[in-house]
Nucleic acid binder design. Structure first.
Lengths: 164, 164
DNA sequence: TATTGTTATACTCTATAACTATA
DNA sequence: TATAGTTATAGAGTATAACAATA
């Protein structure tokens, strides 16, 4: 009977070094950073190196693909990055003929960004590869339902963002 | 009847700019990055500025506090950082008299790190402040149960890490 | 006057290579 | 030979300030 409810000993140690996390275990920002080590490594190997895309480049390309005509300012806000940095990343995508700039007809200051055919193809393929790679790698620790739940919890958390 | 099960339209747009995430929505690495914007901002305001601690400094200080005698190599592995960087961060903590270095008695190469009284006090206080700040801020979007669940899912994901 | 976007520049953080000392 | 830690240096990524053009 006593073994039915095994005295669960939750693992609260760091990956690799098995250091005690204690109070740190309950800090969401810390756990986000630890989890990001896994996904960042996965991205570099499966998408970054093969497709020559940096994480930000991938995200910017995806957002442009899914939001044709989006402006630099909108990307800046969506990713909480400064305008000069967005300009730099978009520049790199334009130079590779993955994205096109177009002046707005209604507002001479703004620009409309769109993917080229090559850019759209790269977005679709790299995203598919990454999603499949995450499904497999994360599957060793999280069930499909847990993976989906994690996504939704992270999205809810992300929407807490305060304006600037 | 048709209104009972309202056709749920899950929000799959980015914070702030409300851009469509589409496929990107299901990329865990992307959602981790978006969620980190919230916690990073929270950290800077509540701990970073008041206690003059960078995110890595805070984490290193906490791990030393919870693991007296830990080595630089262990910290390096736990945080997936290179030895030179860990050395630099520990240097800063030692210079502020928050951490002490001590040569290992059994292995002349290794060092044992410990917090000073001031270091331990700072670790305890900053962690308490941060945990409370996260509880309140995240509480606008996540229930206490969801916050706890998120921590555990992130920890499981973090433990997927491949050995270098 | 406010907003969009760019240029120039400095700062933060991290990675690599070479080295010392010890096992 | 392998490991723990350091030093020096280069690179990636980001932020700030100043500016041009348009609303």
């Amino acid at each position: 009977m006593a073994t039915r409810k095994a005295p669960r000993q939750p693992d609260t140690t760091t990956p690799e070094a098995q250091l005690a996390e204690a109070e740190l275990h309950h800090i969401t920002g810390y756990q986000l950073a630890q989890a990001s080590i896994v996904t960042a490594q996965l991205f570099i190997e499966q998408v970054g190196k093969p497709f020559e895309l940096r994480p930000v480049e991938f995200t910017v390309l995806m957002l442009i693909a899914d939001n044709p005509g989006v402006s630099l300012r909108q990307l800046s806000r969506a990713l909480a990055m400064t305008p000069p940095n967005i300009t730099m990343w978009v520049d790199k995508l334009v130079e590779r003929n993955l994205v096109t700039r177009e002046r707005s007809a209604t507002d001479g200051r703004a620009q409309h960004l769109s993917t080229t055919e090559a850019g759209l193809a790269l977005a679709r393929q790299s995203c598919q590869v990454l999603r499949e790679a995450e499904r497999v790698a994360l599957g060793t620790a999280l069930s499909p339902a847990e993976q989906a739940l994690l996504i939704e919890l992270l999205h809810k958390l992300a929407c807490c963002r305060s304006e600037d």
